[in-house]
Design a protein around this nucleic acid. Sequence first.
DNA 1: ATATTACCAGACCGATCGGTATAGTGAGTG
DNA 2: CACTCACTATACCGATCGGTCTGGTAATAT
Lengths: 196, 196
Amino acid sequence: MHSSTITPIVSAKERLLASAGRLFHEHGINATGIDLVVRNAGVAKASLYNNFANKEALVVAYLEQELDGWIRNALALDNPLSPHRERIAAVFEDLARSVESNTFHGCPFTNAVIELPHCTAVRTVTTNYRAVVRTHLANLTDKDAASISTSRLVLLYDAAITAAKVGRDAALVREASTMAQELVDAHNPGDTQHGR
Amino acid sequence: MHSSTITPIVSAKERLLASAGRLFHEHGINATGIDLVVRNAGVAKASLYNNFANKEALVVAYLEQELDGWIRNALALDNPLSPHRERIAAVFEDLARSVESNTFHGCPFTNAVIELPHCTAVRTVTTNYRAVVRTHLANLTDKDAASISTSRLVLLYDAAITAAKVGRDAALVREASTMAQELVDAHNPGDTQHGR
DNA sequence: ATATTACCAGACCGATCGGTATAGTGAGTG
DNA sequence: CACTCACTATACCGATCGGTCTGGTAATAT
């Protein structure tokens, strides 16, 4: 296929992924039937099975898309010239904002693992996601990814998401943010330290 | 009904709740059909609908049973004569053990909220559960339930559970435990303080 | 001109879902 | 004895599930 190919404005595959992204995330994976995904995408059912082997493959593609989005968002939020504590705070602040605007429906990976506890493909993508989060948090503090304080940041991020989704408590999210900043401060007594 | 009534060794309702407890928790609520619950309980389908209005009512009863079990377990684990930090550590240690023995399938309330995001009855029981947890953690440190450090303990408990279920990482659970103990120590400089 | 490709519309499939209805059993009570 | 009550067993219901199949259209490639 050459670059001159026009094809539809957006391909059936893209529309399906966009539809799956909305529906799976807002209403859950098991509660979202294939027919609904297809109708919502404005696409023929056959187009789904031309692009994905089955529903599970669609779910995995959806999660990979979410992982990609997480990375993009994380990089967009980060200012490498800011002090460590501010870079960390930005991560939590983004979460707190989405809780308050009621656009938060939980971590797509956690939700997927809970909805499909025996699906190994889901576990694999989720493991990738968690590694990415850990690495990113480590980068924000210029710490080795294996360090104890990185584990603590991961824990606080887990906590904030659960408190947001299950507890519906933005104050808890902000408290987690405070804890994370204190953690960074404790390891960087010089305060206004900068990233790479 | 007099006390002389024998009835079956265990009633159909009890067997249904036991069956639901196992299946909902291990395989998820949506993945567990009514027929399976009934068969696993060794009970007639009609007996289910004689005791519960519908599946949702069974789910709520299951969660109430889990809440009851959580409280009983928490009290059994607690030694009010131990120092605060040990009382807190016991909560996390119990969690870490169940992760390592692969008997941990996540928080039933978190799982239910994610599986049935639009069910208000599930939200209600879950809110109760979270209040119970908060109060218990506050009691373990003799702190006012509204205090900041109680919020932090709640966050660390959320974190430990998520790290266990999604991250499958007992080391993270233990790290959360350490953080909780440090938190208690910081607020109780006299160390070997005792409860009520 | 022809073959291929990507797509749409929708009928259709067997399986399973939550839930109901029918019929019968066995122990406890008046 | 008749009656109730909790229970079992199973057939059945409409709806929906994930997935397949047929048939047709429009654009591209050779």
